[in-house]
């Protein structure tokens, strides 16, 4: 491996900087939510390692199956302790990881735009500016009280003010209640957001003060991103998919979307020579391992029945002719 990687190093082209169209094949597979989580944009090791790339893949919400596919492919490509070859180009792990995170931001921007929030504002927003509110969704009869909850202190000893808002009655309208943790995107917040319908998510985002809407998107968790991506319109999903496909093209990775449906996206990836590198789907997949034999079975059964019927008819005619001959002689 060392010899081959040295030879490749002699001919390599290293491209640095943000290159949106730089995409390893698994990026094209991901139409999952890309989460902006700036804390994790910093690789664990200063020099970068393959684990940093895997962590970046997980950060943007890719399932573990995608990480496994990536590692399987990684083992077949020339690599060393600092980087690996993607196509003909050598990429250092730290650059790969950073570009994955940057690519995630692009998706976050599109999601924000879909929800009526400026993508530019999301880029510059501070996720910690979002004061976590815990939306409580209920199908029960409306509550009429609006008594403020008791004040609670956060981990820094600061008192976090709370407001309780009770909205109009009806099972469709969300009831929001502030939480007291002083943080952003708590587990409760995440669970509540994930469980919302798209309309409820839009209502929730709209209910936030304007300065906090972008902050919310700047702090999306992978689960929140995933849930949003599944719910946005087909046109919006196709737009995000198009970005993934175009991203692969620049690096000689030709991605083709084979099938979208049943909550699954099947795609194929080919290299610059046209060699099929992978044919898989985003997320784990149960394959179709049975042929539909309805037509051959019914067709053959029908043919057999017709044949037997034909024999019967032929025998009947022959018998009738024999009788006619006999009657004619008599």
């Amino acid at each position: 491996m060392t010899n081959s990687i040295e030879e490749l190093h002699n001919n390599r082209r290293t491209q640095r900087g943000f290159a949106m169209k730089r995409c390893v094949k698994m990026l094209a597979a991901a139409v999952s939510a890309v989460m902006l989580f700036p804390v994790c944009a910093v690789p664990a090791h200063a020099e970068g390692s393959i684990e940093d790339v895997c962590d970046a893949i997980r950060e943007i919400g890719y399932p573990e199956e995608c990480v496994k596919t990536f590692m399987n492919e990684y083992e077949t490509r020339p690599h060393d302790e600092n980087g690996m070859y993607v196509g003909e180009d050598y990429w250092e792990y730290i650059d790969l990881a950073e570009n994955i995170i940057i690519f995630r931001d692009l998706i976050d921007g599109k999601l924000a735009a879909f929800m009526g929030v400026s993508p530019e504002a999301v880029k510059t927003a501070d996720p910690s500016a979002f004061v976590s509110l815990l939306p409580l969704l209920t199908n029960a009869a409306p509550a009429a009280t609006t008594a403020p909850a008791a004040a609670v202190t956060d981990e820094n000893g600061q008192t976090v003010s709370q407001t309780t808002v009770t909205t109009v009655s009806g099972s469709e309208a969300p009831v929001t209640t502030a939480v007291t943790n002083g943080g952003t995107h708590t587990k409760e917040q995440e669970a509540a957001f994930v469980n919302m319908t798209l309309e409820e998510k839009q209502a929730f985002i709209s209910s936030l003060p304007e300065d906090q809407r972008a902050a919310y998107f700047a702090g999306l968790t992978p689960a929140e991103r995933k849930s949003l991506l599944k719910q946005i319109s087909k046109d919006a999903q196709a737009d995000i998919l198009k970005d993934f496909v175009e991203a692969g093209e620049t690096f000689g990775m030709h991605v083709s979307i084979d099938k979208i449906g049943d909550g699954q996206i099947d795609f194929s990836v080919r290299d610059s020579d046209g060699t099929l590198i992978d044919s898989t789907s985003f997320g784990s997949k149960v394959d179709d391992t049975g042929w539909d034999m309805t037509l051959p079975v019914i067709g053959s059964a029908g043919t057999i029945l017709l044949s037997i019927g034909g024999f019967g008819w032929t025998a009947y005619r022959a018998n009738k002719r024999r009788e006619e001959v006999l009657n004619g002689e008599n």
Partner: peptide, 20 residues
């Protein structure tokens, strides 16, 4: 008709066996 029917019968049986 007889050879045609015979051929159809054998073909149908062959396809059915291949299917199952």
């Amino acid at each position: 008709l007889t050879p045609i029917l015979l051929l159809a019968l054998c073909g149908g049986l062959a396809v059915l066996c291949y299917s199952l």
